[in-house]
């Protein structure tokens, strides 16, 4: 089967690292809960990409199945997270996470 010349795995490692760090910075920088959820998605995707890259480079299909499971968990997480966000918005009329300090001692 004719396929493209693959990039070396190091490039995928660095790309995933950069994506993951952007996700971390997003969680740290923003106060809007929706943007924070999107940053979490970005981090999950960075891990997915690296997992798929290693799976292909190892010639082992198990890694891609793990990516599939991570996608399933991410979808469930987003659905529940957004539902919780709706309830928070209904109570606070805002999605600012600094208002959610009632658990703080």
């Amino acid at each position: 089967m004719e396929h493209l010349k693959m990039l070396p795995i190091e490039h995928y490692i660095f790309l995933s690292t950069i994506l993951f760090c952007i996700g971390v910075a997003g969680v740290l920088l923003r106060r809007n809960a929706i943007i924070i959820l999107m940053s979490v998605e970005l981090m999950l995707n960075a891990v997915n990409l690296l997992l798929a890259a290693f799976s292909v480079f190892h010639g082992d299909a198990a890694g891609q199945v793990f990516v599939f499971f991570i996608m399933i968990v991410a979808a469930a997480e987003v659905a529940v997270g957004l539902a919780i966000l709706m309830v928070i918005y209904r109570n606070n009329h805002s999605t600012d996470i600094d208002l959610l300090s009632k658990l703080k001692w």
Binding site: M1, H3, M6, A52, V56, F57, G59, D60, A61, Q64
Partner: peptide
């Protein structure tokens, strides 16, 4: 690796 099993995906 020389990607002997390129069809795993």
């Amino acid at each position: 690796n020389d990607f002997a099993r390129a069809d795993i995906g």
